[in-house]
Nucleic acid binder design. Structure first.
Lengths: 313, 313
DNA sequence: CGCTGCTCATAAGGACAGGTTATGCCTCCA
DNA sequence: TGGAGGCATAACCTGTCCTTATGAGCAGCG
């Protein structure tokens, strides 16, 4: 029951030129570029990253050679980004930020035991929201060791009640007894298809009956997403296929296998890139709350309170 | 006049443990992990990336050692991700996607001459939107060579009229004569502050007069963002400091220097991570259109039409 | 039952990237 | 006219990642 079982997908150009890694400078080089942009000098950037000035000079130079672009204007009294360098640096910043989220998440997965704050979260929240929160928390309280356990809503509640976690995050319809909660955000399930699908060009909203009558790509029964959909349609959702992870559902939908129902959190990126298109729906209650939960009476204090305050919009 | 001149900022933990690059696997490893997730086998993933099976095996193993996490369940008939591996892979996917955007953008900056589609775009669009569009275009038309030139709105128009570009993207109030256009999206300028600023806790919307009376962190006169703000306030915006790039303005605002006015495109990430907070505003027309533009009479065809169709919501 | 085909693991060697120290040149400023 | 800070080059070292060659576990089939 663990996870990924993805269908074939016809996308991504694994064409010639070899992997991304040969065309994109590695993270260390991008980090260095950001430091140069911020500090205005190769030497200063080198010091900040704990390397020597010649190392920085050589690394920036080979990055420019690799990309075929002049990124930095060197002068005897400092270095500034060129115009294209500024643009490249902005794109690089996004890569580094994603890597920082990765790192924050990985670190939380690693430090299981001796953590000052033990968090349990549902898959969707752990995937899309939590790394950013952890990063923000680290910015304010750099020495707070956080541990993370991801699972379904029931598992999260269980861990809290067993005192194996201090704070939980779930997306669901109801809160288990013995737990207090606060709504931290709202989420909507939305219907998505590949851009080529007939529904993609629909202007008139889909009726609930139509949705219930159409075979859909769905998460397995028991997942939070599926529960909300079944309840909204009165237990009637017809699966085209059932997949055990959000990722697999997205991949199937992108490949054109059919319409899928997913959290808007999960498909924001795909919508922005037009890999998926949202289909308007009427009359169906696909909203759900994202909640922070904790054992009744143990109102969050210290790091837990800090993290909680970061999550509220 | 080129670019970045960032003020001091007290954030990011350049603390111990050395750079990100030592804690996060490099792009090649992340790419490999995604391939393993998708294909269900180390050997198959290795083949897809054009390396040998032992190389893949060793690389995954050292990634697991580096992170201190078991990512893959190996068996004599294939490999599957562990639960934590699935989570890590989802985070890795975001890093790789950011790198793909970086690559698409860099490639467009590089191929200046012999391109089938020459695009000119304003800075904001080039920074935040265009890489995604280029990636989507590459997915559909892998062999379309695109070149990109970024500049302010006037420069974009100039390039189009001089037949140095086929398609332009600008965010602005008006369209120069000699050019046709279509609105592809709507953008709003928003007022943001660091979370600690008094305005951050404001519930009651800010009046235009209040905004005009307060010194703000702003882009330089002549930028599209500044033009819209000045016009909305009747030419009255009072600068606290003027900076020459969106990035510098964001950094100043994050560090708490004061309130800033920026496109919501530019601060979406910062808002999500609570590094900045949006301040409600009333009575001020801060909306602006994002437009695709082209020389009158040369309606986009071929690759230009293709790209245009990807940008419309 | 043993062959064939798939999987992953290990071992030994080579290429290269990225780091270091040492040094030189340029420019601004006191 | 030093001195300080900036960048570049050269020579060398080391670790990482790749390769080829080989071994071993599990499945299906004649």
């Amino acid at each position: 029951m663990s996870s990924v079982a993805e269908p074939h997908q016809a996308d991504d150009g694994h064409g010639p030129g070899g992997g991304l890694a040969h065309r994109v400078p590695d993270l260390g080089a991008l980090e260095l570029l950001l430091a140069v942009a911020r500090l205005g000098s190769l030497g200063a950037a080198a010091r900040e990253l704990g390397i020597t000035q010649p190392a920085a000079s050589s690394r920036i130079r080979s990055m420019e050679r690799q990309m075929g672009l002049a990124l930095v204007d060197r002068s005897p009294r400092g270095s500034r980004l060129t115009d294209t360098g500024a643009l490249v640096t902005d794109w690089a910043r996004r890569v580094v930020e994603a890597a920082e989220c990765f790192d924050a998440g990985a670190q939380a997965l690693r430090s299981r035991r001796d953590s000052r704050l033990r968090v349990a979260a549902s898959m969707t929240i752990a995937e899309y929201l939590l790394p950013g929160w952890l990063l923000a928390l680290r910015a304010e309280r750099p020495d707070t060791a956080v541990s993370l356990h991801a699972g379904n809503s029931a598992a999260v509640a269980e861990r809290l009640l067993a005192n194996e976690a201090d704070l939980g995050f779930v997306e669901g319809l109801s809160v288990p007894t013995g737990l207090d909660s606060v709504v931290i955000a709202h989420d909507h399930l939305i219907v998505v298809t590949a851009p080529g699908h007939p529904w993609a060009r629909r202007r008139r909203p889909l009726a609930a009956s139509e949705l219930a009558a159409t075979p859909l790509i769905l998460r397995e029964k028991g997942s939070g997403t599926r529960q909300v959909l079944d309840s909204a349609l009165g237990g009637l959702a017809r699966p085209l296929i059932e997949l055990s992870s959000t990722t697999a559902v997205k991949a199937a939908a992108v490949s054109g296998a059919g319409p899928a129902v997913l959290s808007e959190l999960a498909v924001r990126e795909e919508l922005a890139m037009r890999r998926l298109v949202s289909v308007p729906v009427e009359d169906v209650a696909l909203a759900r709350d994202l909640r922070a939960i904790w054992p009744t009476g143990h109102r969050p204090v210290g790091p837990a309170r800090e993290l909680l305050s970061l999550t509220r919009g």
